[in-house]
Design a protein around this nucleic acid. Structure first.
Lengths: 209, 209
DNA sequence: CTTCTTTTTAACCAAATGGTTAAAATATTA
DNA sequence: TAATATTTTAACCATTTGGTTAAAAAGAAG
């Protein structure tokens, strides 16, 4: 029996090609022929490995959804300093987006079209407890008067916004503010520090002596 | 000659129905039949007013794109206080998003699929000088040592992120953090103040006496 | 060599969908 | 009323697209 783990094997190439096509065009915009072409195979082989478009899509969507939240649970639990937690969280999130720049737009578009369909798919994925742990650390810091009072949801919204939004808006920003891919990459690299500082500056209670 | 300005007229109803369908499903996902149904007319009448799907789409896309940047140019030019400018800008942007919650996802998705196609469409739309004026005000404030040094593009990215992102992520956030439409609306109303404060707190240079 | 798996070739089908038409019916307006 | 504009009805067509098949060819493994 030949087992396919090698990336050179067709099934893997199909999955990667399909991911890119779905990410860029969305479910309806994606063309099976385009996936086959990009994978360097033919449509018949698509059917050999995946029964149909939906099966292929579901496999990719599930895997992608799981990757949308950075795995920083351990770090959050261990670390005590809320500012270091924020710094590491931001760093991890932006790094994640750098490695999958078109992931968030894909997810949001598909969820927007039909949230029910999508959330049925991933119902088995247990709610990550990460947010809960983060909440506890933020709460503790607020009670210690280290940071200003702010609704947890709003704080999370702000952090996620500044980490994720640039990757959603990239093509528009590039045109409107006319910068190259390379400039964008530099900016995102900078943001790992900048966003963390931005957030900390805005919530930190400074001890004026 | 009957001139259609009344919203009860078919052409207007078609445009509104098409806007909603395109916004939710994207170009490929949108169905002409669904648009006709929502407008309460038939497919033949769609063809009577618009030659084809692309024509209809283009009309909607152009109009939508123009609405994506709030019209705050005058305000920016007149106002001298950078913090008031930021407050008003944030307020205007979030209000805009409240009135058109699915506008940004629609724009970003279509641009992501084919930026060239889209930007050819709106080539005639002159670059708004708003950003330029905003830049000058920020620059001035920095030179007066009112705000910390930060790249203008990064500051704009942060502001836009926190204003627009929640509307992109709404369906996902609602599931993951489980809040209702009404809670979301309240949060967005709060954000008009909160985001402005958040930004100002992070860039303001405080005079410690 | 034999067997099993992978891949190609080259068709083909069915359904969905955008698009089209012609005629009649209904409003609207001059 | 006559003329014009709007809307419906009820077909129909062409194309795209996802999906299917059967056979052969090529590769891998024992």
């Amino acid at each position: 029996m030949a087992v396919q783990v090698d990336e050179s094997h067709a099934r893997t190439r199909i999955l990667e090609a399909a991911r890119q096509e779905f990410f860029k065009k969305g479910y309806e915009g994606a063309r099976m022929q385009a996936i086959a072409d990009a994978a360097g195979i033919n449509k018949a082989l698509l059917h050999y490995y995946f029964n149909n478009k939906e099966t292929l899509f579901n496999e990719i969507f599930e895997a992608s959804f799981r990757k949308f939240i950075p795995h920083v649970e351990e770090m959050i639990m261990q670390e005590e300093d809320i500012f270091i937690i924020i710094k590491k969280f931001v760093h991890a999130y932006i790094s994640l987006m750098q490695s999958q720049p078109s992931l968030p737009l894909f997810l949001f578009h598909e969820i927007n079209k039909d949230a029910d369909r999508v959330f049925k798919l991933i119902f088995n994925n247990a709610q990550p407890t990460m947010m809960l742990h983060l909440f506890q650390k933020v709460d503790k810091a607020q009670k210690k008067n280290l940071i200003k009072p702010i609704r947890f949801e709003q704080l999370v919204m702000n952090i996620m916004s500044m980490c994720v939004f640039p990757f959603l808006a990239k093509p528009m920003m590039q045109r409107v503010m006319s910068f190259t891919d390379s400039v964008f990459d530099d900016m995102m690299e900078q943001r790992k520090q900048l966003v963390a500082d931005f957030i900390i500056d805005s919530i930190q209670i400074k001890n004026i002596q």
